[in-house]
Design a protein around this nucleic acid. Structure first.
Lengths: 198, 198, 198, 198
DNA sequence: CATGAATGAGCGTTCATTCAT
DNA sequence: CATGAATGAACGCTCATTCAT
């Protein structure tokens, strides 16, 4: 099993997935694009889903590594959060088929597990940032778990709406909106609300 | 064309859709489950997509009617918002295949249009509540559009994560989380953030 | 069984057949156009083919009556032949779906029988004209049966090519061509041929 | 893709087409008769239409090659014409489903194109023979295009009537009739006609 | 290991006919 | 007689997977 061939197949698959999505990409197309026989795909990956799985694992791995490295250079928690959110957005925007699996839970059981563990690690990253914020006294209340969830939901919802948004807005605008919403979430939208209800 | 049979078919289709989703449910299965011939489905609905469309239209119609009725009984904007969010959650939780279409934009062009118009009406409802909140002085800043978007994203993200959450949490807990997050979004999570960035 | 209803159905079917042909016309469409229920068609005609059959029988009957009347006014055999040929062409051109059955032997066994008997009567008409021509001394040889067949084949071949011809030629041109070919067939194309081979 | 299997499939298809015609022959039937899976047909031919196309193309190719070779051995134009006509008849008689497409313009666009180009080449062959006849002084008038058309129509009409004729006549009789009619067409049937009308 | 020909269950749709009302 | 809802076999085609070479 030459590692080169493996990489060729994955590269070919990725290109096609990005354009058409895994569902609309046939195994024949991947094989043709990679310059190997269809059977070879099965020797290496066992199934079409296997290709998807491996591709996602790889890309997620790279993204998470880069994300962590990027966060190390930032000290302010809110800035860390904004940066992480924008990077996450960029990653999912770059690989829409991964976004589809992460957000929509498409694919087989293993893919969904992958997505699930990705989200759990993402939550961990946000949670750690929140902890730091609390230690620094930047967060006034103890409900950091709720805030963490809120951040994650906010991002997911925003990422979900990407296709719609991209029709009318530029990427920079969307990134600006992400930081704005996170800031808004931190600062609160209402005056009296907090006093009345919490 | 008896209305009873129409309902039987829709009921059978709904049951299957809820378990497998429209994509994985064959026309033969619907026909078998409804106890009619395949051709009968086409006499009533014209196409598989026609069944999906009618089912979604019906359910959305009922939900929106109930939602509006429920909101009329509430005067406080934040309470209105919480109620709307919980009702919306319940609706999508009850009909996961509608959630799939609404959230994921799955299905054909018609389904996506249905989803798109649903979301636009949903946004309208939230926006109207925000307007009222602003008129009452409950919202301190003028960016009510941004807040509206934030609310929608929050809900979508939360609804997206339903399947995962339902493994570990009870529905009541999730509903409580929804109201908590909306309140949090109103009151703000951080102390210094607002001052520093806005 | 009101005769009016019968006629309505046939009229509706004819209109549709002329535009789309029997194969592309559905029983539903005929019923709708005739303003009756689908089942009624079956009460009257037994099957879709039954409608086709009856329609053809009617039209052929009318055509043959008119044809014979027209021929009575002509005395010269060659002129009779030309007239018959042109009338036949006009008839089949006016009712392309009948042409399809007459020429292509489409449809069920009964329709094919209808077509077969039509052709046999047509041959009879031409044969009678040829007999008269021989009695008048207008035909030099005794092979009048062969000539009759030749005429029929010539017409059929020409009618077959109608669709193609109609793209490039006007109807008047085609009618002129018919008389020209019949004349040609009578007068002979070659000089030496006849002497050498017969 | 083994050529043997390709031939097997074509042979199976041909047998069925000859009995029922391409329209009434299902893909499943061809697959069953060929002893292969349905998918295999699509691997080899892409579509049902592809099978029809290939079959027709092959047969027409073989026929035209043989036809040309046969004509090279004959020098007299009238004899050439007779031979071509008889060969053409034999070909269409051997492959009735091809006759159906050639004569009736049945089938999809591609089949009709095939038929159209076949007829155009056939007309070319006849036209070339007529040219030669004129050069040799065997044809008395200049309307060789009209004569060519007449020949083609004659043949088509005759071939159309094959099914009927075969009930009552032997093939040899029909072939004799073809040569008789062509000779007749050359020599002319009437005495006075030519003088009166041309 | 590599190949790619072979597989076949599954898909949504059509429409002439039937038959209970 | 009239109705039209119900029928279901038949259609051409797809594509992830298998397996003999």
């Amino acid at each position: 099993m030459k590692a080169t061939k493996r990489r060729n197949i994955l590269a070919a698959a990725e290109k096609l997935f990005e354009r058409f999505g895994p569902a609309k990409t046939g195994v024949d197309e991947i094989a043709a694009a990679a310059g190997v026989a269809k059977g070879t795909l099965y020797n290496y990956f066992g199934s079409k889903e296997g290709i998807v799985r491996e591709l996602i694992t790889d890309k997620i791995g790279l993204f998470e590594k880069a994300l962590k490295a990027g966060l190390d250079d930032i000290s302010d928690p809110l800035e860390k959060l904004k940066s992480a959110a924008v990077e996450r957005f960029r990653f999912l925007h770059r690989s829409p088929y991964i976004a589809a699996i992460i957000l929509h839970r498409e694919g087989d059981a293993t893919s969904r597990e992958l997505a699930s563990s990705f989200e759990s690690r993402q939550r961990g990253i946000v949670a750690r940032i929140m902890d730091e914020a609390r230690r620094r006294g930047a967060i006034r209340r103890s409900d950091s778990a709720g805030i963490t969830d809120g951040i994650i939901y906010l991002l997911k919802g925003l990422e979900l709406s990407l296709k719609d948004r991209l029709d009318s807005a530029r990427i920079e605008d969307i990134e600006a909106e992400i930081t704005r919403l996170i800031t808004l979430f931190f600062s609160g939208a209402g005056k009296a609300a907090g006093k009345r209800n919490l």
